[in-house]
Amino acid sequence: MINLKNRSLVSITDYSKEDILKVLDIAEDFEKDQRQKILTNHVIASLFFEPSTRTRLSFESAVQYLGGSIIGFASAGTSSVKKGESLKDTILTVSNYSDLIVMRNPLDGSARLASEVAPVPIINAGDGANQHPTQCLLDLYSIRKTQGTLENIHIALVGDLKYGRTVHSLVQALSLFNATFHLVSPESLKLPSGVKKWIKDAGLEYFQYTEFSDVISFADIIYMTRIQGERFPDPIEYEKVKNSYILENSMLEKSKETMRVLHPLPRVNEISEDVDENPRAYYFQQAKNGVYVRQALIAAILGLKK
């Protein structure tokens, strides 16, 4: 029996395969009929201790579509954190004013702490470099929607695989669905061994590449990420690799017609703009799917959808 009611979502590993599929099914229902006013008389707190565009606005949009009310702040500067209040005290206080708390905080592990002290459920909207489970769920939703299934996908993960938290969560989640991983990154930004262990423990395969090479021709999904110059200890090394991981429209000629390009956004230059017109470009729709997925999570955690 899958029951997500009153369960905080801190890390994607808090959810079983069945939990994930449940959320995606509910999200599908919201895609068909987005304006289901089932959240009237509910108050959602949105606590963003650091700035965010997509995540915060899509959560707020999700609450509004559901007919709920939202309270909160969009930066730590406008909250009592500035006066030195502890996270625990802020969470306990806001719990008095709301039915569920959505939180982004720059400290790694802050969401787990919040979930331990709060009497209301917490949805982690990003805790530092650690987890961002709602991004992972919307990625999974986008993969299932475009491929018709989450099982047996060949996914190419491209760019910064070392620090990209969305990549780590996605690997953990797709390890539940028999995926094959094609890891394309510069030598210094390879997927950490702890994350590779997830793949191995699931009995699955991964292949590592330092060049884009032929993965484009057989991948079902190309998941692009941004490579940040400041991640490189040696600026010369960065200059050498920075243009090796740019996806251009001409490169997609030999790709499968059903292949889709995903990106957690914001992009800088790693997907050239001429790709936007290609039907394989899916990143803006992916961001839109984030609203359905967040509607589904809020509804499921508050017990309003089963």
Binding site: S86, L87, K88, P106, L107, D108, G109, S110, R112, L113, D127, G128, A129
Partner: peptide
């Protein structure tokens, strides 16, 4: 070991 961990920044 992680300086950004909440345990190194809050009383927990």
């Amino acid at each position: 070991v992680n300086p950004k961990c909440v345990t190194n920044n809050q009383n927990v």
